[in-house]
Simulated scan of single mutants.
Amino acid sequence: MTADRGEAVGHLRRLAAQLESQAFRTRLQTREGLFPRLRVINPMAPARSEDVLAAHEEDGEWWFWLSWAGRIGHAEDIATAAERVASVLQVIRR
């Protein structure tokens, strides 16, 4: 489990860097006993935030997941995963 936890943190750090380059704020949470998660915040609307987790399937492939169990992208495709997180956190002006 430790190796899996470390790998999850590595994937989340890469995603955090991509999202921060798009002006999102991120905070990696690694409390003992919980899955590591990345809190992503839209700085233009701080109430718009989401937790992202990284987990692997039985075949060993790593994926990013939204906190409500929505799979958003393969861990090797950081750009697509970041784009999907950004679309969830966008602010729609009317």
Rank of each mutant, 00 (worst) to 15 (best):
G73M: 10
E58F: 00
E58H: 08
E7Y: 15
A23Y: 02
A3R: 06
L12A: 08
N42C: 02
E83I: 01
A79K: 06
E50K: 14
T80S: 09
R37Y: 10
A45V: 13
L66A: 07
G60C: 07
A23F: 02
W62P: 03
F24E: 01
R31Y: 12
R37H: 11
E32L: 15
R93V: 14
A8L: 10
F24G: 00
T2S: 13
R37W: 10
L12Y: 10
L19K: 09
A81F: 07
G60Q: 09
I78K: 07
D59T: 09
L19S: 06
R48E: 04
L66F: 12
Q18T: 07
E83M: 03
V40I: 02
G6E: 15
V40S: 00
D51I: 00
G70R: 13
R94V: 08
T80A: 07
E83N: 04
D77H: 05
G6M: 15
E32P: 12
A23P: 02
R71V: 13
A16T: 06
A54N: 07
L28W: 15
L66K: 08
Q90Y: 06
A8W: 07
L15A: 07
D77T: 06
A16S: 13
R94P: 11
L53V: 03
A47M: 11
F24M: 05
L89H: 03
L38W: 08
P36A: 08
S49P: 04
G70L: 13
F64T: 02
R37E: 05
R71M: 12
E50V: 14
V52F: 09
R71Y: 13
T80N: 02
S49K: 15
I41T: 13
D77Q: 06
S21A: 12
F64H: 04
E83T: 04
A8Y: 06
I78H: 04
R13W: 00
E58G: 14
W65I: 03
R48G: 06
A8C: 11
R39L: 12
R94Y: 09
R48T: 04
T30W: 09
G6Y: 13
R39A: 07
V52H: 04
H74S: 12
E20T: 02
W62Q: 07
L34R: 15
R37N: 08
M44H: 15
T80I: 05
P43I: 10
A79I: 04
F35E: 06
W65G: 03
R37K: 14
A16C: 10
L28N: 07
N42H: 03
E61P: 03
R25E: 11
G6V: 12
A23W: 01
W65R: 04
R25Y: 14
A79H: 02
A17Y: 00
R31G: 15
F24L: 02
D4R: 12
T30F: 09
R13T: 05
R93H: 13
P43A: 06
G10W: 10
E20A: 01
S49H: 12
E58R: 14
G70Q: 12
L28D: 00
H74Q: 12
A17L: 04
Q18H: 08
M44P: 08
A69Q: 11
D77F: 06
R5Y: 03
T80Y: 00
